[in-house]
Amino acid sequence: MSTARTGSRRAGGWTPWLYLAPALIVLGGLLVYPLYQLGLISFLEYTQAQVSGGEPTSFQGLANYAALFGDGQFWQVLLATVLFAAACVLGTLAVGCALALLLTRIRALPRLALMLAGLGAWATPAVTGSTVWMFLFDPDLGPVNKVLVRLGLTGFQDYSWTYGRYSAFALVLLEVVWCSFPFVMVTVYAGIRAVPGEVLEAAELDGASQWRVWRSVLAPMLRPILVVVTIQSVIWDFKVFTQIYVMTGGGGIAGQNLVLNVYAYQKAFASSQYSLGSAIGVVMLLILLAVTLGYLRLLRRQGEEL
């Protein structure tokens, strides 16, 4: 397409495109084409019967979206997902940044220990991590309840963490923060290391408190890094699947802990309504794009170039 349009220009005009072509083709194949299919399927009636040829595929227009938006459960799940993801992002950033600061202030040996602990959590596969957390918080055999009871909190005898909606979400939140803070910690720590020592020294000589140094010196200097880790966290936490699926048994008691991704899975794969699942996927994509673009714009408006 680009060759046709730029053909009349001088040869140099389209040489950059040719150099970009291999990368564009790969990106097009891996990103645009699946997205195109996702969008297309969301406009069709496409269930298992259509895939395996039992019934013909038919164009449904916006019917899938209408069904989705008309489903009260979708809005509940969407709200829960947004709030849950926001809490996870805040938790992850707070813990990650705090521990990154801590890393710069402790000796080599404890630093190594903290790094290893963080990397261990990071490297643990989500299914394994979730299962271990479930074991820790098991109502009958879990060590957490035993310790809490021994500390005098007898209410935790046989306490089931996954029964209540909020306690189940809180438990999953802890696990998500645990497995995603190391990325923030390591990245921010690397950023802090790159800040010139004189700047920090000057701030200290001026009598700035720890909080003040972070607020007025480090955070602004680390802004590009913080932007990246925030966007990454938003995307990850919005798309949480494994932790919810494993820890709440596929969405909790009566679906109380469903998030959008698990909901989409239930629709798309468990009940083979691929077109409805695609529609949920498209909605998720649009939300994530909007969040990311909005966030970038907000930063631009504050006068900072990334």
Partner: peptide, 13 residues
């Protein structure tokens, strides 16, 4: 051609 093969797959019955 890879991109123009656009309709989702349906296997023959």
């Amino acid at each position: 051609p890879a991109v123009t093969a656009c309709a989702p797959a349906t296997s023959g019955a």
